[in-house]
Write a protein that binds this DNA or RNA. Structure first.
Lengths: 127, 127
DNA sequence: CAGTATCCACGTCGATACTG
DNA sequence: CAGTATCGACGTGGATACTG
């Protein structure tokens, strides 16, 4: 009774299986622009061009594209105010906050362990 | 005295600056194959073709390429045993374990929150 | 088994121009 | 301000073939 057929209809999600929907999710969230934008938005709600300035090297196209994807996935919300010219605010959702917490771990690793990595590279390249 | 010149020579690392070395690090670790391989290797030491089988969809070229990069960055070690045919083991390093812990957060998010994301998408696509 | 080498298709991404 | 549309360069990455 530990394995009745009806319990097998939802196989446990597994990112290592390329056919598993979770794999596609992982591919999307392990994206450089997604990482940076979500970390920024976890700090505070921001406007479109504000985000553009906040992430050095991010093109308008990729910003727009990534934001749309984030919105679709329920990670951020988009709110347009009928000012002239129009004002649009992007805010993180509770789901997004969950993810941003994990993503910020990557940022911290990169910033904290930079010296270790540079040392490792120097040693590797020396041989 | 809170800002003597010699203290400014090492500006605080900032992933949002495209010129900062930490940005390049982030780009490398926020890579789909890196994420999956490091999570696997955090569980146990594995051989080349074992890793290949463990990550569905990963080509030999990308595996080889990613492993070399991970080794160079001091995240994994490569050990070849003079058997016939040759046996090569990849093991995670302490630095790699640090990163893998953060990366596994991404995997857990993907696997745990898949329903939330799918719901969000359905709602978004409905409008 | 554990790679390397080559070729090339495909998609990503940036640059540019235009709009409400 | 906040986008969209188009185009073309570039690099990633898969397929294939070969090697110690």
């Amino acid at each position: 009774m530990s394995d009745p057929a009806h319990l097998l209809q939802a196989p446990s999600p597994n990112v290592f299986d390329s056919a598993c929907p979770t794999r596609a999710i992982l591919d999307r969230i392990a994206d450089k622009w997604t990482v940076l934008l979500l970390i920024l938005l976890a700090r505070r709600t921001m406007r479109f061009n504000e985000l553009r300035r906040g992430v050095d090297g991010l093109s308008q196209k990729m910003l727009s594209q990534t934001l749309k994807s984030l919105e679709r996935d329920g990670l951020v919300t988009r709110t347009a105010y009928p000012t002239v010219p129009v004002t649009v605010e992007y805010a993180i959702t509770p789901l997004g906050i969950d993810l941003a917490a994990a993503l910020d771990g990557l940022r911290r690793f990169a910033e904290d362990r930079l010296p270790d990595i540079e040392n490792a590279r120097a040693r590797f390249d020396a041989t």
